[in-house]
């Protein structure tokens, strides 16, 4: 049974070889930071990382190297809970950061109060992307449920970003129905009746709309709408701003336990604070996210029109909204009640 020993030996060697844990502070005093983020922030953080690294070097003489991980917000949150050693997380919604605080206790429950503006240095909102010239004459939410209009939006149960889409539709339905929840529910049911494909993620939905030519309107984050226009075909699409929307607040937070273990608390905190500086806010705006800083926002006012917006607090916070709308048997599930006969 020589095979036997070689075999197991090999397996052990393989496992041990990979087990060496990388230390965050290198020999030259440089530091490594892992930012676990969601999908559409790649360009943003590429720019932020370069700017921050230069600033940090100037201020402290230390070199910062960044590792980035991108993916669906919920999936990324689970990865951090299960041990992905993120120093900071920059996710699509506070609910996903709450989950890390609650389930893995890697950061305190009051994380949202530690940085200004609910720990969300940039925001976005929900808008419509329509085909060039707006052939179906889509101006507002009410036009989405007209006969013959097909709407593309991802499944809010699998896509964190799409939960904002749903809430924006709900906000409209509620306002149009004079503040009644029943009217809001009727509206979203009608709306999802116009959705032919429920992609599992926001990027998938964009591809369905842009590449497959399916649907008349894509409900999207404002930054995503700008980005798809820029990356996928200038002049092929128009952005339509609805009468009411939600203020999408992507959260950022230092993951204390990990940062402490890596000895990166200071630089991680400075990194997130950098996002609030005028320089950081300018990078944010250049990447189509709405800056919090009024002065910077004013400079980009043509890009970001004023819209009447609801915030997550109007829905009672994420915990309430999640349980009410998106949990099993919640409002969204009841839209699809039973097989269509």
């Amino acid at each position: 049974m020589r095979l036997n020993r070689t075999h197991i030996g090999l397996a052990l060697a393989a496992i041990v070889a990979g087990c060496s844990s990388p230390s965050s502070t290198g020999k030259d005093g440089s530091v490594e930071l892992l930012n676990v983020s969601y999908d559409p922030t790649r360009e943003l953080y590429k720019a932020v990382n370069t700017a921050f690294a230069a600033k940090w070097k100037q201020d402290t003489g230390q070199t910062v190297r960044f590792n980035m991980s991108h993916g669906g917000s919920g999936k990324q949150s689970r990865a951090v809970i299960d041990g992905l050693g993120a120093d900071v997380v920059t996710l699509a919604l506070a609910y996903d950061v709450d989950a890390i605080a609650e389930r893995a206790k890697l950061l305190p429950a009051n994380w949202e109060t530690r940085l200004p503006d609910n720990s969300a240095p940039y925001t976005s909102t929900i808008v419509f992307l329509v085909r060039k010239g707006n052939p179906k004459q889509i101006r507002d939410w009410s036009d989405l449920v007209k006969p013959g209009v097909q709407v593309i939006t991802p499944n809010p149960k699998t896509s964190g970003g799409a939960r904002w889409n749903f809430l924006a539709a709900w906000a409209y339905g509620k306002k149009a129905g004079g503040g009644s929840d029943a009217a809001a529910q009727a509206y979203v049911s009608q709306l999802y009746g116009h959705v032919p494909v429920l992609d599992s993620g926001a990027r998938g939905a964009t591809t369905t709309f842009v590449e497959r030519g399916l649907g008349d309107v894509l409900i999207a984050w404002e930054n995503e709408a700008f980005l798809s226009e820029k990356e996928l075909g200038t002049g092929k699409f128009d952005i339509v701003v609805p009468s009411i929307s939600v203020l999408a607040e992507p959260s950022v937070a230092v993951v204390d336990a990990n940062a402490k273990a890596h000895g990166t608390e200071k630089v991680a905190e400075a990194y997130l604070r950098f996002l609030y500086t005028p320089e950081g806010q300018d990078i944010v705006a250049k990447n189509y996210y709405r800056p919090r800083d009024p002065a910077v926002l004013a400079r980009y006012a043509t890009l970001f029109p004023k819209i009447e917006m609801r915030t997550i607090r109007d829905f009672g916070g994420w915990k309430v909204a999640q349980a009410r709308f998106f949990a099993d048997g919640g409002v969204f599930d009841r839209i699809y009640s039973g097989p269509k006969r």
């Binding site: 919920g74 999936k75 689970r78 149960k157 699998t158 964190g160 998106f326 099993d328």
Partner: peptide
């Protein structure tokens, strides 16, 4: 399954 995971269930 993925949907359930997304709810941390």
């Amino acid at each position: 399954i993925v949907t359930q995971l997304e709810q941390f269930d």
